[in-house]
């Protein structure tokens, strides 16, 4: 399985093809991530479109989640992790010393693999972000943010009568939508989702996927997923990672119907992974 990383210029035009059509929200160049001595991500160059869903796929341990976490500097919380290279959001380098990761994360929200509501009420879960970022000055405003976030996350009708109830008392799928509502409540521009459906049953997964599709209108979404079907269903753009390098990036349809790289083809046809 040891293969030489494919140099970017040998990857035929996919990047241009996609970026031609829409505005680029996130542009990463020559990104390297190290975990201690391990070189976890090598030379990743990627452009992520605004107001679209980009899916990262690849076998376990390929670095897709790691790369996702560099986009809002969640890796800062891990002591041994080091990031090099250039990641720009709206043309601004997020690893610039002037950038406060706290402000960055308000702009780039995140939803995690396992639903992780805080052990607080549903209301407080959603209101937590707006409170710390000072987005509401009055109780009424906060109520409004909470209500609209829950509505957008498609959870409002299920929980409107028990906002005081604990967030941990919801079902798995509801918890994950609560976490999405929590992320939306800070008005991010980008939402990163790290395998958001891996802990959910098929029905809950369908609901979350539906929600992702709706959110695409207003947000730039990056989703890491294990399921190729899911990537095909929800994303417009797909990136295939393998052994820490970005093998192929393209419109989702192209990647699944006409992969350019042999490794991508092997993966989507189920030969490994």
């Amino acid at each position: 399985m040891v293969r030489k990383p494919l140099p970017m210029n040998e990857m035929p035009n996919t990047v241009e093809k996609v970026t031609d059509m829409t505005e680029t929200k996130i542009a990463a160049r020559k990104v390297q991530v190290y975990y201690g001595d391990t070189h976890a991500i090598q030379d990743v160059d990627i452009d992520i479109q605004a107001k679209a869903v980009t899916a990262f796929i690849g076998p376990s341990g390929c670095g897709k989640s790691t790369f996702l976490r560099t986009l809002n500097r969640m890796n800062d919380t891990i002591d041994v992790c080091r990031v090099e290279g250039d990641i720009k959001i709206d043309g601004e380098d997020i690893y610039d010393p002037k950038v406060d990761p706290v402000q960055l994360r308000a702009k780039v929200g995140m939803v995690f693999q396992k639903p992780n509501p805080f052990p607080k009420s549903i209301y407080d879960n959603v209101a937590y972000g707006p409170r710390i970022h000072g987005l509401a000055s009055k109780k009424a405003e906060l109520d409004e943010i909470v209500a609209s976030s829950l509505q957008k996350a498609g959870l409002w009708n299920e929980v409107k009568d028990r906002l005081d109830g604990p967030g941990t008392g919801l079902s798995g799928g509801q918890q994950q939508r609560l976490c999405i509502a929590r992320a939306i409540a800070v008005s991010p521009e980008v939402i990163l989702m790290d395998e958001p459906c891996s802990a959910l049953d098929p029905i809950a997964t369908a609901k979350v996927e539906e929600l992702i599709d709706e959110l695409r209108e207003n947000y730039t979404i990056v989703i890491v997923t294990h399921s190729m079907q899911q990537a095909a269903r929800v994303s417009q753009q797909t990136a295939f990672f393998h052994l820490g390098i970005l093998v192929e990036l393209g419109a989702t349809q192209d990647i699944f119907t006409n992969p350019q790289d042999k490794r991508t083809q092997d993966y989507i046809t189920g030969r490994f992974g």
């Binding site: 809002n72 919380t77 990761p101 994360r105 929200g109 995140m110 995690f112 805080f118 052990p119 937590y128």
Partner: peptide, 25 residues
Amino acid sequence: QAMRDGSYGLGATKSETVKQVILPA
């Protein structure tokens, strides 16, 4: 750790995470 991640992911500082998420939990 998921609690901390959730809070940091929303842009909370460490002290906010400690005071509002970890200590109550």
